[in-house]
Design a protein around this nucleic acid. Structure first.
Length: 697
DNA sequence: GTTAGGG
DNA sequence: CCCTAAC
């Protein structure tokens, strides 16, 4: 059902990853308003979206590493422009100018700002509105047009979507009719999947635009903030970028070239389509991110809010990489993005990235064949080439009622993408096992030089969420106002609406920089999905295969930023310990409540009740937590460590523990089913407390 | 696949 | 959190 997609982006060492991965902690629920029926939380096409974005960016001649962001920025730009002038030519011009690239730089911050703004300014905004706003962003962007074009080019897309829905086709057709001025180059064909995705997106966009004028206006207004400053830089303008995308499942591969900038890519693969189709066909569509953290959480939440009555979302099959299951959890989030960059000696010093080129991703997704040159000095310093082959795009599972409209589905996808992209991604660098935090350091200072000192095995890039709240406990201060922390409790059990979910990331956002500096580690732990990075030899060989994959693992094991892909060694096979995710007070409260009602010994049920949407919590985790809670409650406060748990909760823990222990005893003695009776009841009447009351009598 | 416990 | 035995 879910589609896995890979997106590639070129990005410079600076910061912008393109593909979101997903931190689990992120998924935290939020308390938000109820979700509308209309809304669907689908994320499935996250990757697809990314692809679209990329395409768009491509068409627009953008050359950014961060696809999503770029796209967004582009959209924003476009919007802005549109506001000023309706003329398409304007847009074209805009694109031609490569503004996309520029925006890319800003994107992340911009997005965050936006999100932040949302949360701040309109915290109480209805979900719909929010949604629309978000949608608007996409809608306004030109990329929809582009999509159309693409659609035209590729007839297959329609076929692909067939079973899915005629609507989609219609949309596509519509789009086509609309007609776009731009002509795609032969080489810029998009894959079928991509097209399909585009259509979806467009449809959503259109729908939104047309139907929600009010909202739209609103949203459009906000975007401008994004882009405020044209950035000079990515600097890659002079570089040629080659981008090719290929899916594992699929054979199709395309490369794009832009004289000016980087480009694009494609995103959806046949696989994605197939998944899509399944989704469409099935009664409920479910989308699960491959990543266990965020994405998934997002999708789950959204889904849940909408479909509480429906069956629960189940984890879908995830793409199975050759990676061991344990590792898989950590690594799956990222999809592959490959790009190749050519270093341009003339390029701007600040922008280190250059063109992007895409390579095929290996099944593991670790391989990336991009080369970027980095320069810290404008003058004669030698350039160091980096080849980042791929990032994985998390797989999302979307669940949508059969009778939902295509538009809803599309919107869902859009939202999912936005969420991921909009949450802001940062790129972290690990050199020789150490994270390099000082952005001002030169490559040379960081030990990265072309002199041969660069040890491929020790260099890695990681994707980090820039604004996503990680764990309530960790960032309570920072996010207290906006983040889920305050509502954590509810969130745990009641997933926020999709919209909310999407919004969340933004809400919690802090300036990326801050996040990085202050929460760097936490972020790593919580969220991120690892990115695989491959570094090509400084020699500049452009052979994707030649570069060995490098996996970087933080020495301390906290972060699992990078997935080792080294073909030379079997490290990638080593299981990695899951990141530690302390239970927040809210979670503890939820747990206590669940145990009070369900009792101990039924951890699966307890888990479902208290952490249904918290995918990163397993029933074993819940059980262990209870174990520790009981222990904690039984020791002196001074001996307790970690985030303090309110005594009140600890008292309840002891009471519940005592009560259920007793019940178990009884059960054994009497062979009675008291527990079961309780467990089956959700009503308080059957809860522990009521029973205790009854027994007391 | 769950539970229960030890580590 | 991990691991494992036992179901």
């Amino acid at each position: 059902m879910s589609s896995k997609k890979r997106v590639r982006h070129g990005f410079n060492d600076y910061q912008f990853p393109v593909i979101p991965k997903a931190p689990r902690s992120v998924r935290r629920r939020r308390s938000h308003k109820n979700v509308d029926n209309d809304q669907i939380c689908a994320f499935e096409l996250l990757a697809a979206v990314a692809g679209e974005l990329l395409q768009e960016s491509e068409s627009s001649a953008c050359s950014n590493a961060a696809v999503g962001k770029d796209v967004l920025s582009d959209c924003r730009e476009v919007i802005k422009r549109d506001q000023l002038q309706e003329d398409k030519s304007m847009k074209s011009e805009f694109f031609d100018q490569g503004s996309c690239v520029e925006s890319a730089y800003i994107l992340e911050p911009a997005v965050q700002e936006q999100n932040l703004k949302y949360s701040l300014d309109k915290p109480s905004r209805t979900e719909n509105n929010i949604f629309h706003k978000n949608s608007c962003t996409f809608l306004n962007s030109d990329f929809s047009r582009k999509d159309c074009k693409e659609v035209n080019i590729d007839g297959k897309s329609h076929t692909e979507v067939e079973d899915g829905s005629s609507s989609l086709e219609d949309v596509c057709g519509k789009r086509i009719e609309t007609g776009t001025k731009k002509q795609l180059d032969d080489g810029s064909k998009t894959e079928d999947l991509t097209v399909a995705n585009s259509c979806s997106v467009k449809g959503l966009i259109e729908k939104h635009v047309n139907n929600n004028s009010a909202i739209n206006s609103d949203s459009s207004v906000q975007f401008p903030s994004y882009r405020a400053v044209p950035r000079p830089s990515f600097g890659k303008q002079g570089n040629n970028v080659k981008l090719g995308i290929r899916d594992d499942d699929e054979n199709s591969f395309r490369s794009y070239r832009h004289s000016t900038n980087i480009m694009a890519f494609r995103q959806t693969s046949h696989t994605g389509y197939r998944r899509m189709r399944k989704m469409l066909t099935s009664r409920h569509w479910k989308v699960l991110p491959q990543l266990k953290d965020w994405e998934r959480s997002c999708s789950h939440y959204g889904i849940k809010s909408f479909h509480r009555n429906r069956k629960r979302v189940r984890a879908l099959e995830r793409c199975r990489l050759e990676i061991p299951s344990k590792r898989r959890k950590l690594c799956h989030n990222s999809s592959i993005v490959a790009y190749d960059q050519q270093a341009n000696s003339k390029s701007i010093s600040k922008s280190r990235e250059k063109g992007i080129k895409r390579d095929i991703i290996s099944p593991r997704g670790a391989k990336v064949g991009a080369s970027a040159s980095d320069r810290n000095h404008q003058k004669k310093d030698p350039n160091v080439k980096f080849s980042i082959k791929s990032f994985k795009v998390p797989e999302l599972l979307i669940e949508v009622p059969e009778n939902e409209t295509i538009g809803s589905l599309k919107r869902t996808v859009v939202e999912a993408v936005k969420t991921i992209l909009g949450s802001g991604l940062r790129v972290g660098m690990v050199v020789q096992g150490k994270k390099v935090r000082d952005d001002n350091k030169t490559l040379q200072q960081a030990g990265i030089s072309q002199n041969g000192n660069l040890n491929l095995d020790t260099l890695g890039f990681t994707l980090e969420p820039s604004s996503y709240p990680v764990s309530p406990s960790l960032h309570s201060k920072d996010f207290s106002a906006l983040s889920p922390r305050g509502v954590d409790h509810e969130l745990t059990r009641r997933p926020p609406s999709p919209i909310m979910e999407l919004e969340l990331p933004s809400a919690s956002s802090d300036p990326p920089k801050i996040m990085l500096d202050e929460h760097d580690e936490d972020y790593h732990e919580l969220a991120l999905s690892p990115t695989n990075l491959i570094v090509d030899p400084p020699s500049g060989v452009d052979n994707p295969d030649s570069g060995a994959l490098v996996i970087v693992c933080p020495p301390n094991g906290e972060a699992h930023p990078v997935v080792p892909m080294s073909s030379k060694n079997g490290r990638s096979e080593l299981p990695q310990r899951r990141t530690r995710r302390p239970f927040s007070v809210a979670e503890v409260e939820a747990l206590v409540e669940a145990v009070e009602q369900l009792g101990t010994g039924r951890w699966r049920d307890v888990k479902i009740r208290a952490f249904e949407y918290a995918d990163h919590r397993t029933y074993v985790d819940v059980k262990d937590k209870w174990k520790t809670l009981v222990h904690t409650a039984s020791i002196a406060p001074q001996q307790r460590r970690g985030e303090p748990v309110p005594q009140e909760l600890l008292d309840r823990v002891l009471i519940a523990h005592g009560y259920w222990s007793k019940q178990h005893g009884k059960h054994h003695a009497e062979n009675a089913g008291a527990l079961e009776n309780n467990s089956n009841n959700n009503n308080n009447s059957t809860s522990m407390s009521s029973k205790m009351a009854q027994s007391a009598i």
